[in-house]
Simulated assay, not measured.
Amino acid sequence: MSRYTVWFKTAQADGVGIVELADERLSGRDAVIEYSGRLTQDGDTFKATVSTRRHSPGHAGILGLDEFDVDFEGISGPRNAACSGTVRQLPDVPLEVVLVLMEG
């Protein structure tokens, strides 16, 4: 299992969370939203599909939705990754993500 700090960014907002990757599965959370999905890797490129749901009351998520699905494509290195996503419920809102491997 690998654990990453993740930074999400849209034109209107940004946020941070933690993601764990293991056996082509991913899971994670931030202060109010949790996410899960599948990942396929081909060399240094990858594709992922992620679904979210609210786990705690609080502020609005960066997209203003509690539940949404995202299809990502990106490039990864030994310690980090970057990808772009299309939110199925908001296809005109680009979502950028950077992941940085956590030590320890």
Rank of each mutant, 00 (worst) to 15 (best):
I33C: 07
L99V: 15
M102Y: 09
E24R: 06
L21I: 11
K47S: 04
T52V: 02
P91L: 05
V19Q: 11
V19S: 11
A48M: 03
G58C: 05
V19L: 14
R25P: 00
S51L: 02
A81G: 03
Y35S: 04
V87A: 05
E67V: 13
G104F: 10
V98Q: 09
N80I: 01
E96Q: 10
L26A: 03
D42W: 03
D23R: 03
G104L: 15
A13D: 08
V70M: 03
V97N: 09
A48W: 01
E20D: 14
R53G: 06
V32K: 02
T49K: 05
D92E: 15
P57K: 05
W7C: 04
N80R: 12
P57A: 15
C83I: 13
K9W: 07
G43I: 04
F8D: 04
E34L: 07
E67Q: 12
I18V: 14
V70N: 01
G77K: 10
D42K: 09
S84L: 13
R79Y: 11
V70E: 05
D69V: 13
T10E: 02
L101C: 12
S2H: 04
D42F: 01
G37E: 02
Q89I: 10
R38H: 05
S27Q: 11
A81K: 05
G17Y: 08
K47T: 10
D14F: 13
G61Y: 07
H55Q: 05
S84M: 13
S2K: 08
P91V: 04
D23C: 01
A48Q: 03
V19G: 12
S27H: 10
S36E: 11
D23S: 02
R53C: 07
A60I: 09
Q89P: 10
T10M: 00
F72V: 00
A11Y: 15
G28P: 03
L26Y: 06
I33M: 05
V50D: 01
L99A: 15
F46G: 01
S51T: 06
V97L: 15
P94K: 12
R38W: 05
E34M: 07
R53T: 01
I62Q: 02
F68C: 05
Y35T: 03
S2R: 05
D92G: 08
D71K: 04
G85S: 04
V93S: 13
V97T: 10
